[in-house]
């Protein structure tokens, strides 16, 4: 069930631009219904942590004739939307990350759109649409092959 405006405003009580953030989150979650806003503790590189809102769920990515539900997590800093979200691919245990130009081994996502973020016009909807295009060309995760590993002919 999508979070209501009141619930979001409560979650975003410590955010500097609460109304702007609330409006964008409502907009994006109404279009990409599987993305859910959650409050959680985000640990920064320097070891400090902060209670931040993240949008967690899947986005539909067409790839070679099929549509895959790629799991992502978008963390909104408390200065959102004037700072870009911190974005991750969140592989399940049946998936492996495919590192590449846009994704590192931790699943962190790097995009010129994030690097050159400026609000407006940069926003979550634009970000997700670019993720769908980029991941449609180069999927960030693949499903692990379920074929059993061949037994070695010689016992160890």
């Amino acid at each position: 069930m999508a979070a209501s405006e009141a619930q979001l405003k409560k979650m975003l009580s410590k955010y500097k631009y609460r109304d702007l953030s609330t409006r964008e989150i409502l907009n994006v979650t109404s279009l990409y219904r599987d993305l859910k806003p959650l409050m959680d503790s985000y640990v920064f590189n320097d070891g400090s942590s902060r209670e931040l809102l993240n949008l967690t769920g899947t986005i539909p990515v067409p790839y070679r004739g099929n549509t895959y539900n790629i799991p992502i997590c978008l963390w909104l800093l408390d200065t959102y939307p004037f700072n870009p979200p911190i974005c991750f691919v969140k592989p399940t245990n049946t998936m492996t990350i495919k590192t590449g130009k846009h994704v590192d081994a931790n699943g962190k996502i790097y995009l010129p759109y994030l690097h050159e973020w400026k609000h407006p016009p940069s926003d979550l909807l634009g970000l997700i649409q670019i993720l769908i295009v980029v991941f449609g060309e180069e999927p960030p995760v693949f499903s692990r092959s379920t074929a059993p590993a061949p037994y070695s002919m010689y016992p160890a």
């Binding site: 599987d34 967690t56 899947t58 895959y68 499903s143």
Partner: peptide
């Protein structure tokens, strides 16, 4: 993920 859509990914041999 919270009972939402099941995450899927392309098979690696594509």
């Amino acid at each position: 993920l919270n009972g939402g859509t099941i995450p899927t990914a392309p098979p690696s041999y594509t």
